[in-house]
Every structure is written in structure tokens, then in C-alpha cells.
């Protein structure tokens, strides 16, 4: 029995989009949909989805209250600046079951990943070796 509230045409953003895993066009896990941006055009009566935001910097407002403030303070101290990564809605192929992008994720989402690879994990011998699938 399909629920009319979840048909393809209508969706609840909090339920169907927020906090879903994002994969880019290379199938790499980019992060979660941490926030969604709405915009009003000149002619619009209601706002439209203009972009999804990801990266831990977008998470602070979602947590709100004391937890959110603590989170923001933590990120400031950690020196993560530049605000969240913005992915225009045109690049989102679908939201469910996971958010898929039609483009490669902007390089900035990999900042922490790249830093850790270069300075920590990648320096340890054997970092490039995966399990043999058949083993």
C-alpha cells in the first residue's frame, strides 16, 4: 500500500533527504546530507530546494542548543573554516535510498581525508593494501 505522503512527487525533506548518505559519481562516500538550502526566486510563491550542504561544519546548526554550540566551538578550535560544502541541487540525481550525485564531489570534502592520508595513515607501511576478496 503506497503512502501518498511518500510518493515520488512529494517528500518530507527531514525524512527522505536529511541525514542520508551521499555518494558521488565515482561511488565514493562523500558524507551525509547535513543540511539543505532553500531559495526564493523572483516569481516563486514558495521556496525551492537550491542545494544540499555537507561536511561537519553544516552539522552544528542541526544539533542546535548546547550541543550545537559546543560542536561549533570545537570546530573553530580545530581550525575547520570555510563553511560547509555546497552541492547544487542540479547535481543530485536522487535522495532515496541514498543521495547520489551526477558529479564528482568537490575537492574540499576530502580535506580531512587527504590530510590524514598524507600525514598519518599513508605513512604507515601497508596502507595501500586491501584484503584479498577471496581470502
Amino acid at each position: 500500500m503506497p503512502d501518498p505522503d511518500t510518493t515520488v512527487e512529494v517528500l518530507r525533506l527531514g525524512f527522505a533527504a536529511l541525514d542520508r548518505q551521499i555518494y558521488d559519481s565515482d561511488d565514493r562516500p562523500v558524507g551525509k546530507v547535513d543540511d539543505i538550502e532553500l531559495a526564493w526566486g523572483e516569481a516563486d510563491t514558495a521556496p525551492r530546494v537550491s542545494a544540499v550542504l555537507t561536511d561537519t561544519a553544516a552539522l552544528g546548526p542541526r544539533l542546535s542548543g548546547r550541543l550545537g554550540r559546543a560542536w561549533a566551538a570545537f570546530l573553530r578550535r580545530a581550525g575547520a573554516g570555510g563553511g560547509p560544502v555546497r552541492i547544487p541541487i542540479g547535481s543530485v540525481v536522487e535522495f532515496r535510498p541514498a543521495t547520489r550525485l551526477s558529479m564528482r564531489a568537490p575537492a574540499r570534502v576530502w580535506a580531512a581525508e587527504d590530510w590524514l592520508r598524507e600525514h598519518v595513515i599513508g605513512r604507515i607501511p601497508g596502507a595501500g593494501r586491501a584484503d584479498d576478496p577471496g581470502q
Binding site: 515520488v8 512527487e9 512529494v10 517528500l11 518530507r12 525533506l13 527531514g14 525524512f15 539543505i36 532553500l38 516563486d44 514558495a46 521556496p47 525551492r48 530546494v49 541541487i89
Partner: peptide, 24 residues
């Protein structure tokens, strides 16, 4: 608690309303 959107003909998502309540 939530924002409801509708798929538009041009493939975008238009807000049609809000869900209100005490907890989501």
C-alpha cells in the same frame, strides 16, 4: 519538525508545507 517538498515538472523541488508537532 519537517519540510515537505514536491517534485516540479522541471525536476526541481518546491516547498509545499511544514510538518509541526512536538517531536520528529
Amino acid at each position: 519538525q519537517d519540510v515537505v517538498v514536491r517534485r516540479t515538472a522541471d525536476g526541481g523541488y518546491e516547498v509545499v508545507g511544514l510538518v509541526t508537532g512536538r517531536s520528529s
